[in-house]
Computed example of a mutant assay.
Amino acid sequence: MLTPGLLHCQGLLDGRTDTLLAAADTCDQLRRPWQAARCHEDTGVLLTRRGHRDEARHELEPAAAGCQALNAAWNVARVDAGLRELGVRCGARGTRGRPIHGWQSLTNTALKVAGLVAEGLFNPNVAERLFISRRTVQIHVSSILAKLDLTSRVEVAIRMAQQDAR
Rank of each mutant, 00 (worst) to 15 (best):
H140A: 12
T107G: 06
V117E: 03
I139S: 14
T109V: 02
T17K: 03
A118N: 08
E85L: 04
R38D: 01
G51W: 11
W74I: 15
A65M: 06
R153E: 15
R38F: 03
R89K: 00
A114V: 05
V76C: 04
A92M: 07
T19N: 02
I132C: 10
A36W: 08
V154P: 00
D54L: 00
E61V: 15
G87W: 10
G44W: 08
F122Q: 13
A24R: 10
Q68H: 15
P62M: 08
S142K: 11
R159L: 15
L70C: 04
N123Y: 11
I139L: 12
S152T: 15
D54F: 04
L70E: 13
I132V: 14
W103Y: 12
G82A: 02
L106V: 07
C27Q: 10
Q162W: 10
A81P: 10
E119I: 03
T95M: 05
R153Y: 11
T43D: 00
G44M: 03
R78E: 15
A24F: 13
T151S: 05
R96A: 13
G97E: 09
H140D: 14
T109S: 04
V126M: 07
F122C: 06
R129V: 08
R135F: 10
P99W: 04
V113K: 05
G115N: 14
R153S: 11
Q104N: 01
A72Y: 06
I158K: 12
